[in-house]
Amino acid sequence: MPSLEEFKEIIAKAVSETIERAAIYIPPDIKQALKRAYEEEVNPMAKSQLEAILKNIELAEKFKKPVCQDTGSIIYYVTVGYDFPGLRVLREALVEAVRRATKQVPLRPNTVDPFTGRNPGDNTGRYMPYIHLELVEGDGLEVTVVPKGGGSEGVSYLELPPPGEGVKAVKRVVVDAVLKAGSLPCPPTIVGVGVGGGADIAMYLAKKAACTRKIGTLNPDPVLYELEKELYEALNSLGIGPMGLGGKYTVLAVHVDYAHRHPAAMPVAVAFQCWATRRATVKINANGKYVIEQ
């Protein structure tokens, strides 16, 4: 088994490679959804945008360059076993991975101090990269990297409607969020919806559902499954279309998640993942061996 020092190096290396993978290669489920949208789109302007998107994805793969110049804020979704031997150096290694990837890929330096405007230049800073950490049984580590772009983040939406309105409020908030976002999040998008928990929890669930759940995976909850289908049809009937130029595909998918709520509040959060979905996952075992998946 590798020593702690070795683990730090292994994790930093594996995760920086994972960031690189995410920055350059669009995951297969997203590519497939975009291809389908291109084939089915009839509005010529919308089609021209989807064509440019597909061409761009190809060029990024060919030249191994970041698929979008906004290489995002690096968000980690981590599940780690209680007995993972590198646990003690995990945090340090995850920050180091961002520094390395920033130089190697390279990534655009995107972390700015909100008060002074200073940019440290390496995509790190206070709380950044952000690490969502979940402890589970076992001795392995799984890190999903989401470099999240600013255009789609900028239209995130939260409402706290009266709980009495129930699911109707959820539907209304989602429609309003998509209307308000319009062309800004680079549609077609994946819309993540988080309901309940609390304002922060709803937004966490929404963003996680938008950015990490694969297109084509079915919601195991039959009520949410139906809701997702209904919202998908409804949102695409708005006709905002690719890049807001009209057309069939405003959204590629709708993903809903929820938490139990306080009796007095029903937070509904909507997060957007632009077409340029950057995501990759690395699994590292107790021996330090790793695989990267998308």
Binding site: S48, A52, A60, F63, P66, V67, M243, L245, C274
Partner: peptide, 13 residues
């Protein structure tokens, strides 16, 4: 004019 959002490599090319 629009350049397709996110089509960064196409632009760089």
């Amino acid at each position: 004019a629009y350049f397709t959002g996110g089509a960064a490599v196409l632009a760089a090319n």
